[in-house]
């Protein structure tokens, strides 16, 4: 089945506006002056939303979760490049059996205390497993995902990372996805 692709018409205009924004934003971001830098950022804005009707109740559906918390498995995955001024638009695939207490955070743009105390606050895999056991979720997919939420290059995230994750979900029979921007 060919995938349904979302509206890509915005990408070219965004990239053009981004190229104009970056030379002025770059020195501000290098000095961590995010407020002034992002005042002129060409935020992608959409009037319409894509739509896939829910085919069956969540209690009968296969579910995957995506967090933008910058999570990775030390010693297995490379950390995200948290210092990159334009962010890191890659992703890490995390198996459902992953030990949440063994995950690390490579995302310097939010306070880590809550997540370090309990990773379920940004990646609730343990809680989702409990809901699966209780019959409230059909099944958890074998693979879940983390990105690193600080990415200025929105077009690359949308055109490269998101379709790669979506295709992997489809290959695992995922029917519903929970997205947790951190």
């Amino acid at each position: 089945m060919p995938p349904v692709r979302s509206d890509a018409r915005w990408l070219a205009e965004f990239r053009s506006q981004y190229a104009a924004w970056w030379p002025e934003a770059h020195p501000l971001i290098a000095q961590h002056q995010y407020g002034p830098a992002f005042k002129t950022y060409p935020w992608p804005t959409f009037r319409e939303a894509p739509w896939t009707p829910l085919g069956k109740p969540v209690a009968q559906s296969a579910l995957a979760v995506v967090t933008t918390g910058g999570l990775y498995r030390p010693g297995v995955d490379l950390p995200f490049d948290g210092d990159a001024l334009e962010g890191d638009w890659g992703f890490r695939a995390l198996p459902r059996e992953v030990d949440l207490t063994g995950l690390a955070i490579a995302h310097p743009h939010f306070a880590h205390e809550a997540a370090e105390a309990d990773m379920n606050t940004i990646f609730p895999l343990k809680r989702l497993g409990e809901l699966e056991a209780a019959g409230l979720i059909g099944r958890l997919a074998p693979t879940h995902y983390s990105t690193m939420g600080y990415v200025t290059r929105a077009a690359d995230l949308a055109a490269e990372t998101a379709p790669t994750i979506a295709a992997r979900m489809k290959a695992e029979g995922v029917e519903v996805a929970l997205v947790i921007p951190v």
Partner: peptide
């Protein structure tokens, strides 16, 4: 948006 466009309810 992209995941939804691939036929997954999000």
């Amino acid at each position: 948006r992209e995941i939804e466009a691939w036929g997954i309810s999000t």
